[in-house]
């Protein structure tokens, strides 16, 4: 092979490898990013209630909606299923579930509330199987159960203050949303 031939083969190999590096880097970015929402929200997993993100001040959240109060709880399902409980309070309220590197996997608004209450339980497939296996068939659960795509992620609560006078009520509504860990079903 001539030198030019070797050079062309090496260049083509480099281009093919560059494509793989590109795809790998794009796919890996959500797992190595430090400025992503999950990394910034990790501290909120300690609380049993959603923590208010003050996005309108000098917050990190890009293009926040000044009329919407945002709360978050990060979760790690290793500790058990996460129960989110919210009360409908007449304000627009929505809950969205964001998985690590998998986007929004579930979202609903207070329209889905049953008798004024929204109860969601986020669990892994294994936790769901265990819960269903140990469940009393005569007393079916009323929880809305959602299987998370992976173990870590975060929950976002949005409450709209349609008038500035509703801000305080909206902030209260955000802080009143519970994010508690349910006990793991007994493995037997």
């Amino acid at each position: 092979m001539t030198d030019l031939g070797r050079f062309i083969v090496a260049t083509l190999c480099g281009l093919a490898l560059a494509g793989m590096v590109h795809i790998g880097a794009i796919l890996a970015m959500p797992f190595f990013a430090e400025g992503d929402a999950l990394s910034r929200l990790r501290a909120t997993s300690a609380s049993n209630n959603a923590e208010l993100l003050d996005g309108t001040a000098a917050g990190w959240l890009p293009t926040p909606d000044p009329a919407v109060m945002v709360g978050a709880c990060a979760y790690n399902l290793d500790e058990g299923p996460l129960r989110i409980s919210a009360r409908a309070r007449g304000l627009f309220q929505s809950v969205s579930l964001h998985g690590r590197g998998s986007g929004v996997y579930y979202a609903l608004t207070d329209r889905a509330a049953v008798r004024g209450a929204l109860d969601l339980v986020i669990m892994t497939q294994r936790q769901l199987d265990l819960t269903q296996a140990t469940e009393d068939e005569d007393e079916p659960s009323r929880d809305l159960r959602i299987v998370a795509p992976n173990r870590t992620g975060f929950v976002i609560v949005r409450v709209l203050a349609a008038f500035p006078s509703q801000r305080a009520a909206a902030i209260d509504a955000v802080r009143a949303v519970g994010c508690t860990t349910d006990p793991l079903p007994n493995e037997s």
Partner: peptide, 28 residues
Amino acid sequence: KLGARDVDPYARAILARTGDIPLGLGEG
């Protein structure tokens, strides 16, 4: 697609870089 489960990998990487939290399609 930003608010859906099948968000594309580029958007996912950009979301990770900016820290933005998109609206879920069920929210708005």
